[in-house]
Nucleic acid binder design. Structure first.
Lengths: 137, 137
DNA sequence: GATAAGGTCTGTAGTAACTACAGACTCAAA
DNA sequence: TTTGAGTCTGTAGTTACTACAGACCTTATC
């Protein structure tokens, strides 16, 4: 069913396989309205096509790049509107890029403290520990 | 009440002020067993002392350094046992450090893609957009 | 045709680490 | 005494999933 109708009807598991997405996540994306409700067979099985594959890939790629689902929803809204401008998308991307850079800076600071502290450890069977002192300070 | 008993009884809001911790978070940490249940007044108000301040600061500092609550629970268990060794703590720290470094590497890769893509944007009022093409690819 | 295996359906619960709120109670000061 | 502020409890909401139970459907095999 689905697949033989026109040679391109995909079931949920097919969509999952094609995109690498988790099976349940597809349903979740539909529920929160970031993936459109697909047509159904008579017995209520979801039927996807290539546009669903493309959209889900877009979302997954965006997630890989650290966009939140809300940001992707907005990005997709611009795409769907069909009249988005490069300027709008660029602004969102630069905002996100700034957040990513902030996170990197935060983590680098954490790394610095952890590395410096661990380096002070004797690693021996002693109760004194620089890490615990750092945490307590 | 609390404060005048011996000059060091702290109420929940006092503990929050002293540590910078959110008021509700204190109750949450108690609920999940990472902060001990403090003694109570007759009317069931929590009463904290300096040891609670120290422990909460330990937790908050650990969170700042990216340790999970589970990791901190383990760290505190070692502390409470009183016989922890520097070696045990060092191992946990180095494991965490490795995770932090992985996260930094991931984010740097993301940053690279985002920066390169945004740089390609004309920023103009055109519908073509390198960001969207990157996401779709 | 019967049956068994596997896919899909729904709703719901669990995860991390909080944060916030409602409604009841208590405390301190004017 | 009354008012305002603080505290108590339990519970719900957040992000982005993931997993499961129990019912239904489809497909293959005999």
């Amino acid at each position: 069913m689905g697949d033989h109708v026109s040679g391109k009807g995909l079931k949920r598991a097919d969509l999952a396989r094609r995109t690498g997405c988790n099976l349940e996540t597809i349903r979740y994306y539909e529920k929160i309205g970031i993936m459109p409700e697909p047509p159904r067979t008579a017995s209520r099985y979801r039927v996807y096509d290539e546009r669903h594959v493309a959209r889900l890939r877009f979302i997954l790629r965006g997630r890989e790049l650290g966009f939140s689902l809300d940001e992707l929803r907005e990005l997709l809204r611009l795409v769907d509107r069909g009249t988005q401008t490069c300027a709008e998308v660029k602004t969102m991307t630069e905002q996100h890029l700034a957040e990513v850079r902030t996170k990197i800076a935060d983590l680098k600071q954490i790394e610095k403290v952890l590395a410096a502290t661990a380096a002070q450890c004797s690693g021996g069977e002693v109760p004194e520990c620089p890490v615990l002192e750092t945490l307590a300070s």
